[in-house]
Design a protein around this nucleic acid. Structure first.
Length: 841
RNA sequence: GGGCAAGUGGCGGAAUUGGCAUACGCGCGACACUUAAAAUGUCGUCCCGUUUUCGGGAUGAGGGUUCAAGUCCCUCCUUGCCCACCA
């Protein structure tokens, strides 16, 4: 037993690979291309975690596999290096984010090298470097010129702790996704990308890509397309109806509220209207001379409260609240009925028109509200189901306190005038047409708010004229540098506003009175296009040359966490579609194939987290077991897309496997003779199995096949050198260090590998992935399973190509089979070629 | 509340996609080597009864389709993840 000195071996090859520039993409156009992409990390102070280790190992395996198969492979890495943690650290310590970020990046690179990831480390991109963000700004400029960017003052999510605006997608449970602080609504001017204009394509084109179905489904749900109608309700003052009001003349037709509904077929059942507290109509009431609201103070108070609703209130009581707008009524356009109007926070300001027609008989939320405020419930849809119909018959408009069910399905119309008896699907169009409304598509997706009042981000390349007009700074002024003379302490005002240098720069270029935009961009902007930069990281004239875009994009395989389903993947797709529309790209989907890795759990199956103190550090594992064993265990522990339980006891298993290989190569001599038939068969089966498994990202079973091969080796007297070389190539994507070591040892010293100490001869990664011979993976003799009534009773050795007749004959000749037939009549005999014979009695 | 994924030995997990359930690995047991231990090697290891043989049962629970179900269909239970008043 020779000691497997992994640290010595790994150190040696790490150095050698770097010196030889093994991972530089050479760009051989004669070879087919393959672009494999990792989700680049944010360089945090904690360093690479096990989740990175897993997904980067997976992509590294694919990279090496494709390279060995003769592909020209692009496999780059970079850092999403703008962002809040570095800035927050700067606020605490005064250390500039640039410094901490660079320091963290160095650590990440060290760790990536340690794990043997085959990146070209000479040109890793950083989104925070001017040579990168110059192009982020350039793309912003293109969006600006093409009308895809708008400035809007809006009620927007404001995080009081981060002192910045955040996107809808970054709010979870009413809290800031980053710092868990309760989000407030605040009126802030800011820049938006018009992603909503792409909603339809973002849904439709999901059909073109090979992504996990769940991810596609979630994206569709997030975009949230629904077909419905916009219906106008006229609003009038109750007082104006009576003659007591002397001002009353003819009702003006200007006061309308538009509602969005997916169920215009239920219009006759709309017994009240509800406006979101944010709805502009409510705010405009005091100035409205036509409409006198009697309880304005109450309404104002309610709106204030809704705005500041605490987290606790939101979670614990789902009970609906609201206030009636006293003195006003709406006219139901279908039947002319006067119905009350409410404002209530169960209606969302940001969806549809921010107003709904309430149909309590056919909507659970409306029903709940109606019950609480004792509002009428009128059934207008009858289920086609008979039992339900008799139960519902003749109930008409009821008092909502009565116990009744809400029927949300489709059916036949009742209580709906001339539409009675019509099918509800048909009635949607008919009723909409009847009242002069129109059918529309509505999306849940909001425009993407990208302005952040933070320092450590990409400056928005906009300046304002003395008149306040926004202007793109122009290509010639890019990169529009992030100023250095800035105090990071958050005050609610954007830090860049305090930079004298930025103000001076702006006036110098554009003239006196011009002012710079002080907001920086959401970091999701930086990560929405980085994969377009990878093929051409050094290009100073273009974000990527046309030629290289054509050569490399779109990405063939993207591997990363499922947590990016909504934001990153959606935004990246939007960028590509927008750039495609401007003629900058020839393709319109960035990632052809996408796969997620699962989470890494501790040995008790609990998610690793700092607060639980159960985080496993890849550095420790590499120190203890080596990079090869660490990589291999991650892949062996289970399927890539499922969670991995990190159990050190389990790592021992792959460690022992590597040690076994190492020793096997010391103790045997490897003659150039031919392999025995049996060994050849095993080798070819292994080649086939491993190739297919790697292609399907089934690394766990690929490794088990490698193990089976090695387990069999001691049974063979002769292990020919060619077979063992092929084995090492199969092993190399998983355990690159040991494979390289043993391969070189084998090459350098034909009879006794280790006599000469295994000096580097040629890298295993410049070899060819072995091919299997289809004839060699088939066995000559096979075992036919013999069943009686589906139960295995015997196994019979037979030639692989045995005919149906022969197989049946052989099985019937078996004593065991005859015993189980027991003289009964044979009804049927099933024969599955090469597999089984089943006798049915 | 909705969506998605998953339930297979003591544990991580396999199963040619409907055809021998439990590959591979961990753990455990016995033996060998050793003064001893570790390491390593060999054999064994789903459960029950007979302990070579043989028979029965088992893939969360129950039902169905089929010659044949871990795999397909229906009902239910459990766990995890994501989204949650989207009209």
């Amino acid at each position: 037993m020779v000691k497997y000195n992994f640290s010595k071996i790994e150190r040696k090859w790490r150095k050698y690979w770097e010196e030889k520039g093994l991972y530089k993409t050479k760009g051989n156009k004669k070879k087919p291309k393959y672009y494999i992409l990792d989700m680049f990390p944010y360089p945090s102070g904690d360093g690479l975690h096990m989740g990175h280790t897993e997904s980067y190992t997976a992509s590294d395996i694919i990279y090496r596999f494709k390279k060995l198969q003769g592909y020209d492979v692009l496999h780059r890495q970079g850092f999403d290096s703008f962002g809040l943690p570095a800035e927050n650290y700067a606020i605490k310590t005064g250390v500039h984010p640039k410094k901490t970020t660079e320091k963290n990046i160095k650590n990440y690179i060290k760790q990536m090298k340690m794990l043997g990831f085959g990146y070209d480390f000479s040109n890793l991109i950083r989104t925070s470097s001017p040579s990168y963000y110059k192009w982020t700004q350039w793309i912003f400029g293109k969006f600006f010129e093409n009308g895809l960017v708008k400035r809007k003052t809006d009620e927007i999510n404001w995080c009081p702790s981060c002192q910045t605006v955040i996107a809808n997608e970054q709010v979870a449970d009413g809290k800031c996704e980053r710092c868990k602080t309760k989000i407030k609504q605040k009126e802030v001017p800011g820049w938006f990308f018009k992603i909503t204009g792409f909603a339809e394509d973002l849904i439709k084109d999901l059909d073109k890509v090979d992504w996990p179905e769940a991810t596609k489904k979630n994206q569709r749900a997030w975009i949230g397309k629904s077909e419905g109608a916009i219906i106008k309700f006229q609003i009038i003052s109750k007082s104006k109806l009576s003659k007591s009001n002397p001002k009353s003349k003819i009702q003006k037709n200007e006061n309308f509220i538009k509602v969005f509904t997916t169920r215009p077929d239920t219009l006759f059942g709309a017994t009240y209207l509800v406006l979101a507290p944010e709805h502009k109509f409510v705010a405009s009431l005091p100035e409205n001379n036509d409409l006198m609201i009697r309880n304005h103070e109450d309404v104002k108070r309610y709106i204030e409260r809704a705005k500041n609703k605490t987290e606790m209130e939101r979670l614990e009581s789902k009970e609906k609240t609201g206030v009636k707008l006293e003195g006003l009524v709406a006219i139901n356009p279908a039947n002319g009925e006067k119905i009350p109007i409410f404002t209530a926070d169960y209606v969302l300001g940001g969806y549809g028109t921010g107003a709904i027609m309430a149909v309590p008989a056919h909507d659970e939320r409306d029903f709940e509200f109606a019950k609480k405020y004792n509002l009428p419930v009128r059934e207008v849809i009858e289920s086609e189901n008979k039992e339900q119909r008799t139960r519902n018959r003749e109930q008409g408009t009821r008092n909502s306190k009565e116990d009744c069910e809400v029927y949300v399905g489709s059916g036949i119309l009742i209580n709906s005038g001339k539409f009675d008896g019509m099918d509800s699907e048909e009635a949607k169009r008919a009723i909409t047409e009847f009242i002069g409304g129109k059918m529309t598509m509505n999306y849940r997706l909001r425009d993407w708010s990208i302005s952040r009042q933070r320092y450590w981000g990409c400056p928005i390349p906009i300046v304002y004229s003395p008149e306040g007009e926004a202007k793109f700074v122009g290509e010639e002024n890019l990169p529009w540098l992030l100023p250095e003379d800035v105090n990071f302490t958050p005050t609610g005002e954007a830090p860049l506003a305090k930079s004298k240098e930025l103000k001076k720069r702006t006036e110098k270029i554009f003239g006196k009175g011009w002012t710079p935009e002080a907001d920086t961009m959401d970091t999701f902007v930086d990560s929405s296009w980085y994969f377009l930069r990878y093929p051409d990281t050094e290009n100073e004239k273009e974000f990527c040359s046309k030629e290289k875009l054509k050569r490399w994009l779109p990405v063939d395989l993207y591997i990363g966490g499922a947590e990016h389903t909504y934001m990153h993947l959606l935004y990246a797709r939007f960028f590509v579609k927008a750039m495609h529309g401007m003629g900058l790209l020839e393709f319109d989907e960035p990632f052809i194939k996408l796969r997620h890795q699962g989470m890494v759990l501790d040995k008790n199956g609990v998610k690793m987290s700092k607060s639980k103190g159960n985080v496993v550090n890849p550095n420790d594992m590499v120190k203890k077991f080596g990079a090869d064993a660490t990589r291999m265990y991650m892949m062996f522990a289970g399927p890539l897309e499922e969670d991995v339980t990190w159990n050190e006891e389990g790592v021992k298993g792959v460690y022992r496997f590597l040690e076994k290989i190492y020793n096997l190569f010391q103790n045997f001599k490897f003659p150039t003779s031919n392999a025995s038939k049996e060994l050849s068969r095993l080798l070819h089966k292994t080649i086939k199995g491993v190739t297919e498994d790697v292609e399907g990202l089934k690394f766990n079973t690929a490794i088990s096949k490698l193990m089976i091969f090695i387990n069999e080796c001691p049974r063979h007297k002769v292990l020919p050198r060619e077979a063992m070389e092929k084995f090492l190539i199969l092993l190399s994507p998983f355990a690159p260090f040991i494979a390289e070591e043993l391969f070189n040892a084998l090459k350098s010293s034909p009879s006794s590998p280790f006599k000469k100490g295994g000096e580097p001869v040629e890298s295993i990664f410049n070899q060819k992935w072995p091919k299997y011979d289809p004839d060699m993976v088939k066995d000559e003799m096979i075992e036919i399973v013999a069943q009686v009534n589906g139960k295995v009773r015997d196994k019979i050795q037979a030639p692989a190509d045995i005919s149906e007749e022969e197989a049946k004959e052989k099985v019937l000749a078996s004593e065991k089979i005859q015993k189980h037939i027991g003289g009964k009549e044979i009804k049927k005999i099933i024969f599955i070629k090469g597999r089984l014979v089943n006798i049915v009695v």
